[in-house]
């Protein structure tokens, strides 16, 4: 019997429209814009926000900080995973640290970060903290799962270190890299903006969201949330697109 492959990644326009209609109906039934604004009102507000200079400044500020934290975590996570796969001492040393970082709630990290550092780097620091263990764990799993038979083949034919890395190891690591990135990309945005919301650094999306909450501007809360979702998806698509291009390139000699 042929099994139908389930695909859960693609968004269907009709499904999006359906949920927008549900939202619209719920807003009409409650008729309390302070609690649940209508989607049309949110989109109008969004249109006005986009035309303000401070909007782009806030978005750029938050984006650059989170992207920086993400990139730093990726580089360090990959380097540590490589070292841990080579040296048991490093692996044993890092195990409790990574477990700790994974288990501590974001809010606790945010409070500690505010006490220890400046608020300016808050979202970078939190994105870094959330992404580091995910990248580290996934790449370490990948490095542990490298096919020993292919490693032996490379040794017998005396492939150079670069060839072994590029053609034998990296290609096997790609699925683990993809999973690690996919999980951490969503995580870094959620945690980064949550950190900004608690720490309220100036000129950030988190601060805008905080102000909207303080002044009970629920439409603004929805609009800013929508912006966060859109940027998060675009960032995810960009990085996963780059990984897709990289994997295509890596499968050619």
């Amino acid at each position: 019997m042929r099994m139908k492959k389930l695909r859960n990644g693609k968004l269907k326009l009709w499904a999006v429209l359906f949920w927008l209609a549900v939202w619209q109906i719920a807003a009409m039934i409650t008729d309390l814009p302070l609690i649940l604004p209508a989607p049309a009102d949110v989109f109008v507000r969004l249109y006005h926000l986009v035309r303000e200079g401070s909007f782009w400044a806030s978005v750029l500020n938050t984006f650059s900080h989170i992207a920086l934290g993400f990139s730093a975590a990726f580089v360090l996570g990959a380097a540590l995973a490589f070292l841990a796969s080579r040296f048991r001492l490093v692996r044993d040393l890092l195990a409790p640290l990574m477990l700790c970082v994974k288990s501590i709630p974001v809010a606790s990290f945010v409070i500690l970060a505010i006490i220890w550092f400046t608020k300016y780097w808050l979202s970078s620091l939190i994105a870094f903290t959330m992404v580091l263990p995910v990248i580290y764990t996934n790449l370490l799993d990948g490095l542990s799962a490298l096919d020993p038979q292919l490693t032996e083949m490379a040794a017998v034919f005396r492939l150079s270190a670069w060839k072994r890395f590029r053609y034998v190891d990296l290609v096997q690591l790609l699925p683990f890299l993809r999973t690690g990135l996919s999980v951490s990309l969503g995580l870094c945005w959620k945690s980064g903006v949550a950190a900004e919301l608690i720490g309220v650094p100036k000129g950030t999306v988190g601060q805008q969201l905080y102000n909207a909450k303080i002044y009970l501007e629920t439409t603004d809360v929805f609009a800013w949330t929508l912006i966060i979702v859109v940027i998060s998806i675009l960032f995810q698509k960009l990085i996963m697109g780059l990984v897709w291009l990289l994997s295509r390139r890596l499968e050619r000699m």
């Binding site: 038979q149 032996e152 083949m153 017998v156 034919f157 290609v171 499968e251």
Partner: peptide, 15 residues
């Protein structure tokens, strides 16, 4: 320098 054909083919599947 030694070259070998293993019992398994040991080809890189993606290439």
């Amino acid at each position: 320098q030694v070259g070998m054909v293993f019992q398994e083919n040991r080809l890189l599947p993606q290439f």
